[in-house]
Design a protein around this nucleic acid. Structure first.
Length: 463
RNA sequence: UCCCCGAUAGCUCAAUGGUAGAGCGAGCGGCUGUUAACCGCUAGGUUCUAGGUUCGAGUCCUAGUCGGGGAGCCA
């Protein structure tokens, strides 16, 4: 008898085979004819397989009739063509083994829909629901697409450090990593003496692997990172996490437009794979989460991303005649309302905004000849907003040093980063893509806490 | 962090300052292959926490905790 999965047992090719299935009961329905239907799910696909368990089974009265949502079982039997509508196949059970009972009165996951807010309070059980099962499979699918996309194009997967001494972007709150006892820290002239700490200097959880990715891009050509990132900002929104996953490709000899072309192909690959490889899960998202999500993704696949300069975008916003809460003029940072207007109302498409004012962007972005703007790009999508932020990097040593000073950073602290320009500098570019933002975009889910297995947000790290 | 809103049965929600209810779920019983099965009965409550006002508080007031929506920061 072959151990198999629900996904395989549901296919017509399996009809006639003797199989063993193992998983969790979703529901049981008793028939008047003296037998029961059990819906079994094992995570291998969205759908369940219907088990027919007849009264002749030795443990029918003692166990099978007591099965309910959440019970774990092994079921052996023959796959048959299902005589009723709703499924192609069903399993006629010859043996039902119960591994774990599940007190239906106490079990928080019930057959009827629960709110996302409630499911967040039972983070250890929510993967057993349709929504979170679908999300886990989609997240896996996207992760796989990311690796395949870059591997096929000759990128090297590199692993930047999680613990870092450099405050990469010069902005944002970082989580401190320390072994110093906060109750009795070693002091030097009234301040904490970090030379006595584990690393001999203050260290943090990384906010970006970009600077380290640049080390490898400036040695090996095309690289990407894919790993966790940490921000200690007190952000309480549906689009921010304290711990999230980011993908950061970095390419030597790429300019900003090469960067855009790559970003567009990358996003389209992820969308295309999700629609094909997770079609059943995507259909569920369309039916139960966001009725337009698949249509929206398909239309984005078909059209080219628009490329608009920051200056032109400001112009469009000014001429729109709309009154925004934050008035628009050249030099302001674009607000959510502005980005939303551009993607959802004006262009109704994914848009790449580029060449932002230098005052708005970090030191490492390449200064344009006009000296007012830098080679930055943001990819904006309807519904989610910014999904990618990237730039062509400043490869000129003197300009980079000048930009650091301009932003109040000490070039000495970035000596190794400057060395990359000092020795054999190359034009290069890269971007960062937030995995969870992509998952929001792909699924139509409304809250980023529901697209990551165990969300980390202010005041919340339970599971 | 700021603004607004909310917290009542396992879940989703009702309840003029005056006896806390319903639907679903659960238990039991019924029902000729059911599909979020269906029908009947039963059980189920420290109304988020701590104070306060009142003859009387789920309801009004104060503080806190947690959650949601929006904003800022960003991915």
């Amino acid at each position: 008898m072959d151990r198999t999965t629900v996904a395989i047992a549901r296919r017509e090719e399996s009809i006639g085979k003797q199989v063993r299935l193992q998983g969790w009961v979703r529901t049981r329905r008793d028939s008047k004819g003296g037998f029961s239907f059990i819906e079994l799910n094992d995570g291998s696909c969205f759908g369940n397989v219907q088990i027919v368990a007849e009264a002749a089974l030795p443990n029918y009265e003692s166990e099978i009739k007591k099965l309910n949502v959440g019970c774990s079982v092994t079921i052996e039997g023959e796959v048959l063509k299902s005589p009723a509508k709703g499924q192609a196949t069903e399993l006629k059970a010859t043996n039902v083994i119960v591994h774990g009972w599940c007190d239906a009165d106490a079990y928080p996951i019930q057959k009827k829909g629960a709110t996302m807010e409630f499911l967040r309070t039972v983070g250890h059980l929510r993967p057993r629901t349709n929504t979170f099962g679908a999300m886990a499979r989609l997240r896996n699918c996207v992760s796989n697409s990311i690796h395949q996309f870059f591997q096929e194009q000759g990128f090297l997967y590199i692993h930047p450090p999680i613990i870092t001494a450099s405050d990469c972007e010069g902005a944002g709150e970082l989580f401190k990593v320390t072994m110093i006892d906060p109750a009795k820290p070693p002091l030097l002239n009234g301040k904490i003496d970090y030379t006595q700490d584990f690393f001999g200097k203050p260290t943090f959880l990384t906010v970006s692997g970009q600077l380290q990715a640049e080390i490898f891009a400036c040695a090996l050509g095309k690289v990407y990172t894919f790993g966790p990132t940490f921000r200690a900002e007190n952000s309480n929104t549906s689009r921010h996490l304290a711990e999230f996953w980011m993908i950061e490709p970095e390419m030597a000899f790429y300019d900003l437009f090469d960067n855009m072309t790559l970003a567009e192909a990358f996003i389209k690959r992820i969308i295309g794979d999700a629609l094909i490889k997770c079609s059943e899960d995507m259909k569920f998202f369309q039916e139960r989460i966001d009725k337009d999500v698949v249509t929206r993704l398909e239309s984005i696949l078909k059209t080219s991303f628009l490329r608009v300069t920051y200056t032109d975008a400001i112009d469009i916003l000014v001429k729109s005649g709309k009154t925004f809460e934050y008035p628009v003029k050249w030099g302001i940072d674009l607000q959510s309302e502005h980005e939303r207007f551009l993607t959802e109302e004006h262009f109704k498409n994914a848009v790449i905004l580029h060449d932002y004012p230098r005052t708005l962007k970090p030191f490492y972005m390449r200064v344009n000849d006009d000296e007012k703007t830098v080679r930055a790009m943001d990819v904006l999508v309807p519904g989610v907003g910014e999904i990618i932020g990237g730039s062509q990097r400043e490869e000129r040593l003197d300009v980079l040093e000048m930009r650091m000073k301009e932003q109040g950073l000490d070039p000495q602290a970035y000596w190794w980063y400057l060395d990359l320009r000092r020795y054999g500098t190359v034009p290069h570019a890269g971007f960062g893509l937030g995995l969870e933002r992509v998952l929001l975009f792909l699924s139509g889910m409304g809250n980023i806490r529901d697209v990551i297995p165990c969300p980390r947000t202010p005041k919340s790290a339970e599971f």
